[in-house]
C-alpha cells in the first residue's frame, strides 16, 4: 500500500513539469499583454517600456519561463502585474472561499447523489425511480448560472431567508453550495444507479440472496460498496473541477474564489496570476485523482493487490 502511494506521489513530479510548460505556453500564445491594461491617456512610452522591462516581458519566452520556474522553486509565485500584490498572497486570500464552497458542494452532491442512486436502484422502474432520475437529469443539465439566480430570487428576494451574495458567514454559503452541489448530485445519482444495478446482477449478489441474507444488508453492505468505485473516480475528478469550475456561481454570488481570480486575470492577461491560479487548480485535479486512486485501493482490495 505505502509503496503504491509513494509511486503515485513520485509520478506527480513529471506531471508538474509538463503542466507548468503547458500552462506557461498557453497563456503566452494568446494575443494581448497585461501592460496595455495599465496604459492610460497621457502616459509616456518610457513608462510603458519601464513596465515591460520590470516584468521581463521583453525577454524571449523560454527565458521568461526559466525565470518563473526558478522563482517558483524558491517559493515565489511572482507579483500580480495589475494588482501589484504577491500572487501567493492572492491565492491564499481566494483559496479558502473556493475550498469551503467546493468541499460543501462535493459533500452535498455525494450524500444527495448516492442516496438518490440507491433509492432509484432499489425501486428500479417504479415511479420513484423515474422521478428521481428526472430530478437528476435536471441537476446535470440546468446551467448553474441560471439555477443560482433562481435560488436567489426564491430564497433571498421572495422569502428573504438567505443573503443574495457575500462570503462572510455560513448563511451565505448555503445557496452557492446548493447550486454547485445539485449539478454534481445529478451526475452521481445516475452513476450510482447504473453501477448498483450492474453489481446487483452479478453472481455473488444472487448467491447472497440465495443464502437468505436480508435485502437491506445486501443492498447497503455488498452492492453499494462495489458500486461506489466509479463514484469515487468521479468525485476525485470533481475536487479539482469544483475548485476552479465554479466560476459562474462565484460570479453570481459575488464570492471571491479562485475561479473569479482566474477569469479576471485572464481578461487582463495578468500572467503571474493566471499561471499561479492555473497551476494550483491543475495540481488540485492531480491531487484529487491521486486521492481517488488511494480511496480505490481502500475500497477495492483487488486494486491494492495489483500493485503489490
Amino acid at each position: 500500500m505505502w509503496q503504491f502511494i509513494l509511486r503515485r506521489l513520485l509520478l506527480m513530479i513529471p506531471i508538474f513539469f509538463v503542466l507548468s510548460v503547458i500552462i506557461f505556453s498557453l497563456i503566452h500564445i494568446v494575443p494581448g499583454n497585461p501592460i496595455d491594461n495599465l496604459i492610460g491617456p497621457g502616459m509616456t512610452k518610457a513608462h510603458e517600456q519601464k513596465l515591460i522591462e520590470k516584468y521581463h516581458l521583453d525577454k524571449p519566452l523560454p527565458v521568461q519561463y526559466g525565470i518563473w520556474l526558478a522563482n517558483l522553486f524558491q517559493g515565489d509565485l511572482g507579483t500580480s502585474i495589475i494588482e501589484k500584490r504577491p500572487v501567493a498572497e492572492l491565492l491564499r486570500h481566494h483559496l479558502p472561499y473556493s475550498l469551503s464552497l467546493g468541499l460543501t458542494a462535493i459533500a452535498l452532491s455525494f450524500v444527495l447523489g448516492v442516496s438518490m442512486g440507491i433509492i432509484s436502484a432499489a425501486a428500479k422502474d417504479t415511479f420513484i425511480d423515474h422521478a428521481a432520475m428526472v430530478v437528476a437529469l435536471f441537476g446535470v443539465t440546468i446551467p448553474a448560472f441560471w439555477l443560482g439566480l433562481i435560488l436567489i430570487l426564491i430564497f433571498a428576494v421572495w422569502l428573504n431567508l438567505l443573503p443574495v451574495s457575500g462570503s462572510g458567514d455560513l448563511l451565505s454559503l448555503i445557496l452557492p453550495a446548493v447550486t454547485v452541489g445539485l449539478g454534481g448530485a445529478g451526475l452521481i445519482a445516475r452513476i450510482t444507479r447504473v453501477s448498483m444495478l450492474e453489481v446487483a446482477s452479478r453472481d455473488f449478489i444472487v448467491m447472497l440472496h440465495a443464502k437468505g441474507l436480508g435485502k437491506k444488508a445486501i443492498l447497503l453492505k455488498h452492492t453499494l460498496r462495489n458500486a461506489l468505485i466509479p463514484v469515487i473516480t468521479i468525485l476525485g475528478l470533481r475536487i479539482g473541477w469544483v475548485l476552479g469550475g465554479t466560476v459562474t456561481v462565484e460570479i453570481v454570488f459575488a464570492r471571491p474564489g479562485l475561479g473569479q481570480l482566474l477569469i479576471t486575470g485572464l481578461f487582463r492577461r495578468d500572467y503571474p496570476v493566471i499561471q499561479g491560479a492555473m497551476l494550483l487548480l491543475a495540481m488540485g485535479i492531480v491531487l484529487g485523482t491521486f486521492l481517488a486512486d488511494v480511496l480505490y485501493a481502500v475500497a477495492d482490495p483487488r486494486v491494492r493487490d495489483q500493485h503489490q
Binding site: 436567489i152 433571498a156 443574495v164 451574495s165 457575500g166 460570479i251 453570481v252 454570488f253 459575488a254
Partner: peptide, 11 residues
C-alpha cells in the same frame, strides 16, 4: 462590494 454580475447587483 465587488459584485461582477449585474443581476446580483440589482437584486
Amino acid at each position: 462590494k465587488d459584485t461582477k454580475e449585474e443581476s446580483t447587483r440589482f437584486l
